[in-house]
Design a protein around this nucleic acid. Structure first.
Length: 210
DNA sequence: CGGCTTTGACCTGCGC
DNA sequence: GCGCAGGTCAAAGCCG
């Protein structure tokens, strides 16, 4: 699959492309659907919900070469001049509650926002909603500029867990779904995963090839 | 009836 | 300051 840097996929993708990739994130991201106690691979747990081939791809390290596709390494804590809303000193793995509190405090005082780390995945799938083992509640959907597919917004339904994710299908590659996770799960995965062995092996292959 | 999705309104930030 | 776009809220409706 190909995502070019000059492609107007969406605003979020555009700024993703300008983020640097942290080698500490690869081959497996520390946050997205991760519980802190789980091995990183396990936390991904992408599994098929009964449909065709599922192909999780992970982005290689470095530069803006998005063509390698896969994990987009959206570490929002990394300082980037293009993202002025971020606090440069924010640690890579921001504690969920701390980030939330900081956000609230910032809203009150009108200071800089502390944004939670974001991690984006590209997955080739017939379904938009990848069953990652967590339960999500949809809270919004927006049409996105330069994309005929709407972006869906989900929140983890676990009490006290404020993890969010955005799901968007690419216009140029309708089989490709970009899922962006924000925050860290403060609880274990809620569902079992039957397809896990296959997914795990696939992820390990991708990880080893980086 | 509870949980979820849908969807229009609203809020916020950014670029011009 | 204004308009646009992204993100969130919340009421209404749907479904099991």
């Amino acid at each position: 699959m190909n995502i070019h840097c000059d492609e107007p996929l969406s605003s979020s993708l555009s700024f993703m492309e300008n983020l640097s990739y942290s080698s500490s994130l690869l081959p497996c991201p520390p946050s997205p659907p991760l519980s802190s106690s789980s091995p990183s691979f396990l936390s991904l747990n992408p599994r098929l919900t009964g449909l065709g081939a599922y192909n999780a791809e992970f982005k290689g390290h470095g530069d803006n070469n998005i063509e390698q596709s896969g994990y987009l390494g959206l570490d929002m804590s990394n300082s980037s001049p293009l993202d002025h809303r971020r606090v440069p000193e924010a640690p890579a793995a921001v504690d969920e509650n701390d980030a939330e509190n900081a956000l609230k405090a910032v809203k009150k005082k009108g200071g800089k926002k502390v944004r939670k780390p974001k991690y984006a995945f590209q997955t080739r799938s017939q379904v938009d909603i990848l069953d990652d083992g967590y339960r999500w509640r949809k809270y919004g959907q927006k049409a996105v500029k330069n994309n005929k597919f709407p972006r869906s917004y989900y929140r983890c339904t676990f009490h006290g867990c404020n993890v969010k994710k955005q799901v968007q299908r690419l216009t140029k590659d309708e089989g490709m779904v970009v899922t962006t996770y924000e925050g860290m799960h403060s609880h274990p995965i809620e569902k079992s995963t039957e397809n896990f062995e296959h997914i795990l092996s696939q992820l390990q292959i991708y990880g080893a090839s980086l």
